[in-house]
Design a protein around this nucleic acid. Structure first.
Lengths: 244, 244
DNA sequence: CGGGCACTTGAAGTCGATCAAAGTGTGTGG
DNA sequence: CCACACACTTTGATCGACTTCAAGTGCCCG
């Protein structure tokens, strides 16, 4: 059975940033529009996989043979420089697609941050399917479009924001815990400080220091290492835009 | 008459980076696939405009009513922070589209760097057209996909590369002068140092210093302020990846 | 030819990186 | 269940790349 069908509910909860409220949610735009036949077709070419924390699903340079849809857990997508410097270009969660934006070979790597499950589609099957189900293609274009907008925001962050502004922006864009959506402001951080640093173009130490600063100023509270509560969303938002 | 038809030739010349050779060129993927009827339909809803240097075509926050295709000249796309910090997210040239990646309102601004001409499509007309010409949609998805890959490269640049690596990467990704394609290594820089700086997440002074360094080490030669020749492409490529 | 703007170059300052060490949590094996 | 080991995180001190501030230089255009 294809999990895609169950995504809208999850997605509607997980995006709180303004850029995404208008479109509902990212995965929603894919599955919400599809009729039962289209879903059945998708189902017929889907292949389910489970990954343990740290396992890779895509390796930079490999021929781009598959497209993935994450059904649970979280994934890091990154690029490396020859000397090992890493830039994480995105964290992906349930409902997100991976592997669409590729040519012949994958131009990035993707690995599970924590145990994850996903649907895998052979790219050729997938293309064939799209020809039969044009609604899918337009939904994907809309998604790609929103990812592009998100990428532009990240460029602004990486090119022009201070460490404090970067961390604040990051926390605000994080999906709220879908398990306990009522507990407002509670955010889960499945990734390590090193991954946050590599996402924000900073070092571990700087990320840690900024967290400490936000903690002592009362903007956030660290519930545990991988879970925090945003105590003052307004101040955090102001900080994110350089108005703190 | 719609200029789109004339783009393939121009595009085939202007992209030299490896990421784009496989797809031919970005605009090519849009116009190359379309039949005469589709082109005629596009033509019927196109509206031609000319812009003087510095004039804007899109302003951040305005309702997103149009999609544009640049037919000559060059355009800067950027986002601003409240205090005026600017991140240029891309330079666009003949054949490129602007305004696809938007929701209700534009999330960025776009202005002509030099005198430019463009086709303008009302977004509603444009959407209607897409419904009739599915080939257009799949071509646009492919383009969006490549822009996403380019955006990921830019994130790597902004997050993890040094000033020298950024400038080197920038010069290598610049389109070669389409007017004189034979003169290998000759690059036109229609934008100012300030624009380069805001694209690379640096200051004017740092960009200038790196240019000077590349000049004195013989990697490039400045023909004029806005035109330079890459004398040692291999060394420049090595520098761009941190192997200099 | 002269004014203005963009660019270059130099000197000092700063934010984040790097180096270093102590603290904390987690998982494993006894 | 506890103790140990290891990996991750936090905090502190120093360093360096890029920024900021400040003159100069040169080019373009009237």
């Amino acid at each position: 059975m294809l999990e895609l069908r169950t995504l809208p509910a999850a997605c509607a909860q997980r995006r709180s940033d303004a850029a995404c409220t208008s479109c509902g949610a990212r995965a929603f735009s894919v599955c919400g529009r599809l009729g039962d036949e289209d879903l059945a077709k998708l189902d017929s070419i889907a292949e389910h996989t489970a990954l343990k924390a740290g396992e890779g699903l895509i390796r930079q340079g490999d021929p781009a043979g598959h497209v993935f849809n994450i059904t649970s857990g979280s994934v890091r997508v990154y690029k490396l420089l020859p000397d090992g410097r890493r830039q994480i270009t995105g964290f992906l969660f349930a409902g997100d697609f991976v592997g669409l934006a590729t040519g012949e070979d994958y131009a990035f790597s993707a690995e599970a941050i924590e145990d994850a499950t996903l649907c895998r589609f052979r790219k050729s099957d997938y293309r064939a399917l799209i020809r039969q189900a044009p609604a899918l293609e337009s939904a994907l274009l809309e998604r790609a479009t929103h990812e592009l907008a998100a990428a532009q925001n990240q460029m602004l962050l990486l090119g022009r924001k201070t460490a404090l502004e970067r961390v604040a922006s990051f926390l605000l864009n994080l999906p709220e815990d879908p398990v306990r959506p009522a507990s407002d402001g509670l955010v889960r951080l499945p990734m390590t400080r090193a991954e946050i640093a590599d996402y924000l173009g900073l070092t571990i130490e700087t990320v840690s220091r900024v967290f400490s600063r936000l903690k002592t100023t009362g903007v956030i509270r660290l519930v545990s290492l991988h879970e925090l509560r945003i105590e003052q969303p307004d101040r955090l938002a102001a900080l994110a835009e350089g108005e703190g």
